[in-house]
Design a binder for these strands. Structure first.
Lengths: 207, 207
DNA sequence: GGCTACGCTAAGCGCTCGCTCACCGTCGGC
DNA sequence: GCCGACGGTGAGCGAGCGCTTAGCGTAGCC
């Protein structure tokens, strides 16, 4: 069942949209470094070193260290939003769509934990304009999940007194997976996804 | 309904165990700075400045910047564990104790969000020995919550197929409050605590 | 009133940071 | 075979970092 190219930790790296090759290698190195130590504790020398280049090479492909974070955050949020949209807009009951959304969203946060960690926890390191752009994407993420829950309430599948609060809690639960998930731990991303889908269905009152 | 001394954001600051006064002022300043910008992005000059002192004054009371983080983390974890222990060991059904534990734990993460943020998200900035000490406290936190859930399963109050996984999810949900809670937002810590207690009872299958 | 102890400051050390610049090897087009 | 474009390097700049040190004001004790 193995597919495509794999890298550290068995994660597939789909940064194919980043070209040329050297720019992608730098970006992947930055994702790893930011995830491990955080944006502010990561040096440009460390990033360049992981990519097998001299410190100056970074500035051929990126204007600043912050631009690297911005690009990573943008691509990561696009991917996260894409995952939720796919689940939200497929055919099926609200129950099925919510379970699908949560399990795939969680699988992403667990399986691609390094990326998710940077995407979810390094937002504050962005400047005002870049952050505003990302915050707009996050509002769309919220809207997709809220939409499914509203559908389930309308159809009578769900029993949810506080739709906005429950949406927040569901997303919060999924996002925090990126903080605690351990690639070498006892659970696979698929197992966590299934467990969380079940827990979330309970939260919305599916009997 | 206002009580005691208040500081920025309406939070009560109970750092009374930290003496002398200058050391406490520095520590409170560090909590605010670490919460706002993160440990690595905070300078010792910034901390001292917030406390109304020169940069060198910090080193009269603390050996290093890391010692400040260690003290904050230690006191914060002690407080968090204390909150959970109190709820876990009171009289009452597992349902009542779990609801109490979650609502008070969440109230702390929301109401004292700056402290909680440092405690929960700056762990990696500690050195190996300090981190090991804190990790031991976190295992006790986990054990308290798992204990209540196990009690509920044993008494037939709860229906939980995966106790360890559910414990993890419950704690994760509560902890993540420190990431998103907004003091100027529409919800009070009490409201979030009540909402989350309800959601968690649903997660453990209380009808 | 002299003396010590203590809390604090001004100045600055050594270092590392993000980033720049002058230069170089390679490779396709003519 | 020459040339420009491109992707890369080595060296290093100015700034800001964590932290130190010499010295100063004040309060308490004899």
């Amino acid at each position: 069942m193995s597919t495509a190219q794999e890298t550290t930790g068995g994660e597939v790296e789909p940064w194919e949209e980043v070209t040329p090759d050297a720019a992608r290698r730098l970006l992947v190195a930055a994702v790893e470094a930011f995830a491990e130590r955080g944006y502010h504790a990561t040096t440009t020398r460390d990033i360049a070193g992981r990519a097998g280049m001299s410190p100056a090479a970074l500035y051929i492909h990126y204007k600043t260290k912050e631009e690297l974070l911005h690009r990573i955050s943008r691509i990561g949020h696009d991917r996260a939003l894409d995952i939720l949209r796919t689940a939200a807009r497929r055919e099926g009951s609200a129950t099925e769509r919510l379970a699908d959304a949560v399990s795939s969203f969680v699988r992403w946060h667990a399986g691609r934990r390094t990326t998710a960690r940077v995407v979810q926890y390094e937002l504050d390191a962005l400047g005002p304009e870049a952050r505003a752009e990302i915050v707009a994407l996050r509002r769309q993420v919220d809207a997709e999940v809220r939409g499914i829950i509203e559908d389930g309430v309308a159809s009578g599948e769900f029993d949810v007194p506080d739709v906005k609060g429950t949406t927040l809690a569901v997303l919060s639960l999924c996002i925090d997976v990126a903080r605690w998930f351990d690639v070498n731990g006892p659970r696979t991303p698929e197992e966590v996804g299934a467990l969380y889908a079940d827990l979330v269905l309970r939260m919305v009152g599916v009997r």
